[in-house]
């Protein structure tokens, strides 16, 4: 097997929600790859389809949402499976969820059940996929508990034997997120999806959690998809970046190129809106003009053109394809190529 073959490869993924008011195309033809052991950062404004894309990978889209098109190819030991073809409730999908692909959700407070102890919920996950610790042998609760205590220690929770019997609302925000990370790692996944894992916690704790994630990633060599709207976090965490807008990939590339030589006008606008320590004082921070369109009113053509400073007449007629742009990026913008996305 070739080492540079991707672990996860998403191709032309489309997810839509059939609401009473109309069809919302939350993800509209997204493609990207995740390499083994790579940290992929996904950025975009709220509502750009980042979270929906990640849920689609785990087949966790709730009705009335539906994957309408595309492939999600995931490489396992015994070959490649297309997750988009698996039934959400099938045994095959459940074998992958939690075991090979784990999720670190956004709000650690609400992501734990308040009436079960934290340890209880992690032990359950370990027992569900106990073969990942002891192939071919049943595991008892006490063994799973020992593993949980070990995991707690790994993620830096002090007094793990006591904390394991706590309820989530008895833990601080940082501890809760560490417990959540322990749960996600409990079955040694190949891919970790972290959905804005630090948005709901305060800045100091945020830094600790990020350091922890980086440390664990190096130790276990787990691939991570890191979703955030915080470009600063991306710069610290990711090696490769995907920029999304209204369910489409605008630009992707290695983190340095994205930050220092952005190609797409949207990426440029995003970067301009970061406050800088070295900027001039008393100058208004540039913002992206206009507002995110209402989901029922998707603009035709390139989704960004109504807000784009460099929009051309053809931008409202055709959708630009994601094409390689030298030196290292990919961008979907007619400023850089003429290719039209046919769909």
């Amino acid at each position: 097997m070739n080492a540079i073959e991707p672990l996860l490869s998403v191709r032309d993924l489309r997810v839509s929600f059939a609401l009473d008011e109309g069809l919302v195309r939350a993800v509209d033809g997204t493609s990207f790859d995740v390499m083994p052991g790579q940290v992929l950062g996904v950025v975009g404004e709220s509502g750009c389809g980042k979270s929906v894309t990640m849920r689609a990978i785990l087949q966790l889209i709730d009705r009335p949402g539906r994957i309408t098109n595309g492939e999600i190819r995931f490489r396992r030991d015994d070959g490649v499976v297309d997750l988009a073809r698996l039934e959400p409730r099938s045994a095959a999908m459940r074998d992958i969820r939690g075991a090979e692909i784990a999720l670190i959700p956004q709000e650690p407070m609400a992501a734990f059940s308040p009436v079960h102890t934290v340890g209880d919920q992690i032990v359950e996950a370990i027992l569900l996929h106990s073969h990942r610790w002891q192939p071919g042998k049943r595991m008892g609760r006490s063994e799973a508990r020992d593993i949980t205590v070990g995991l707690f220690r790994d993620v830096g929770i002090s007094m793990p034997e006591q904390r394991i019997d706590a309820y989530s609302w008895q833990l601080s925000g940082g501890l809760r997120q560490r417990a959540m990370i322990a749960m996600a790692l409990s079955c040694k996944p190949r891919l970790l999806i972290a959905d804005e894992p630090t948005t709901a916690i305060d800045v100091t704790t945020q830094a600790q959690v990020l350091a922890l994630l980086r440390d664990l990633q190096e130790r276990y060599n787990t691939a991570i998809i890191f979703i955030t709207h915080d470009l600063g976090v991306i710069a610290q965490m990711a090696s490769y970046v995907v920029v999304m807008y209204l369910g489409r990939v605008m630009e992707e590339g290695p983190v340095d190129d994205i930050f220092h030589a952005p190609k797409h006008p949207y990426t440029k606008a995003l970067l301009r809106s970061i406050p800088s320590l070295y900027g001039q004082t008393r100058v208004a921070l540039p913002v992206i003009s206009g507002a995110l369109p209402h989901p029922f009113n998707r603009p035709p053509g390139c989704p960004f053109h109504p807000r784009c400073p460099d929009a051309m007449p053809r931008c409202s007629d055709a959708v630009p394809k994601l094409m390689p742009v030298p030196p290292n990026q990919f961008a979907s913008c007619f400023l850089h190529h003429e290719e039209v996305d046919p769909a």
């Binding site: 849920r55 785990l58 966790l60 709730d62 409730r89 999908m93 459940r94 074998d95 992958i96 969820r97 939690g98 075991a99 784990a102 999720l103 959700p105 956004q106 709000e107 609400a110 992501a111 734990f112 059940s113 308040p114 919920q121 359950e124 996950a125 569900l128 996929h129 959540m180 749960m183």
Partner: peptide, 16 residues
């Protein structure tokens, strides 16, 4: 059923 902990449990791979 709409609470985040249900998604967490599903993401663990539990039977529905």
């Amino acid at each position: 059923l709409n609470k985040p902990y249900v998604v967490t449990a599903r993401a663990k791979g539990m039977k529905e």
